[in-house]
């Protein structure tokens, strides 16, 4: 049904080849139409067990993975826990090995700490999908973003050459930014990151992106504007004065969007702080592809579960 995906786990987009990414995007596009069927289910992963281990609060990502698993007929089990497993007196490793003893095929993990998925993958037999680990990576988000960009800006293409993407906001604490940087660069896009310098990570340009400490120059002529959620707790950490000032200087409004290419699309991984990083009129406007991102999220996660869950003999 698809190309070979030579990875046992999906821990990040760093290290994925262009062919790997296209394998997921192609398969995701095929799965997209299942959402329009009267019976939204295929038997592909029947008899397989997918555990959603969400140790950090999440509604949309968990729901998206759960729907994806169920549409493939896998048995999906959700485990939600405290951000810190040590508060329960059980370590992540204990949780992992206990889950592994029940022989799941795929474990999807969301965790507040960077590296948690990497650590899990070293210890268990099941395939591991990173659904967000601290400020490290959130690969399925980047893949669904790439799927969205391809649909709107690079239809039928296997690369993003000639496209420029601006990722704006809290780059420092964003796993979405990191996963998108790796994936977009691999696909050949030009990537800019922008935000107050307090929210740009050290030596970020060495990843191959351009960095801006104001968003206006970053938006000039871009094809894609990706806004990130600004987290209020960063304000308490002294990274910016307050959301009012942030919105005034770093929020996306019509005036700033006019700097981008006339056909530029606006993306956001959600949930949106309306009126903070994104003017509601833009979020709900014609340039916004935010709900398309959500729809593609399910299809991309189906593709990933399929590739890692034993749906493809090409999996290592």
């Amino acid at each position: 049904m698809s190309g070979v995906f030579p990875h046992r786990h999906l821990l990040g987009t760093e290290g994925l080849s262009r062919a790997d990414i296209n394998t997921v995007l192609d398969l995701g596009e095929r799965f997209l139409e299942i959402a329009d069927r009267p019976i939204k289910k295929v038997p592909t992963l029947r008899g397989k067990t997918v555990i959603n281990l969400f140790l950090e609060p999440s509604t949309r990502t968990r729901t998206s993975f759960e729907i994806a698993a169920k549409r493939l007929s896998a048995d999906a089990v959700n485990i939600s826990g405290a951000a810190s497993s040590t508060t329960k007196g059980e370590t992540l490793m204990d949780t992992a090995t206990n889950i592994d003893a029940m022989s799941p095929d795929v474990v999807v993990i969301r965790h507040a700490q960077a590296g948690a998925a990497v650590m899990l993958a070293k210890r268990i037999r099941a395939a591991v999908v990173n659904a967000g680990d601290g400020a490290h990576e959130h690969p399925t988000q980047a893949l669904l973003d790439c799927s969205t960009i391809r649909a709107h800006k690079a239809k039928g293409r296997v690369d993003f050459a000639g496209l420029t993407v601006a990722i704006c906001g809290d780059i420092l604490n964003s796993r979405v930014a990191r996963s998108n940087i790796h994936a977009l660069l691999t696909l050949g896009a030009r990537v800019r990151v922008a935000g107050p310098r307090t929210l740009l990570p050290a030596r970020i340009t060495e990843l191959g992106v351009e960095a801006f400490d104001r968003i206006e120059p970053a938006l000039e002529g871009v094809d894609v504007v990706m806004m990130l959620r600004i987290q209020k707790e960063r304000q308490a950490g002294g990274r910016f004065p307050n959301t009012r000032e942030y919105s005034r200087y770093f929020g996306l409004n019509a005036h700033r969007l006019a700097l981008a290419h006339a056909d530029a699309i606006v993306m956001h991984p959600g949930p949106i702080n309306r009126g903070v990083e994104l003017d509601p009129a833009i979020a709900d406007g014609p340039r916004s592809v935010i709900l398309d991102q959500v729809a593609r999220g399910v299809a991309i996660r189906m593709a990933v579960l399929y590739l890692l869950g034993g749906g493809d003999s090409g999996a290592e």
Binding site: R178, P201, A202
Partner: peptide
């Protein structure tokens, strides 16, 4: 440094 930027470790 660059490694902390890649890994997302504070």
């Amino acid at each position: 440094g660059l490694v902390s930027t890649r890994t997302g470790i504070r």
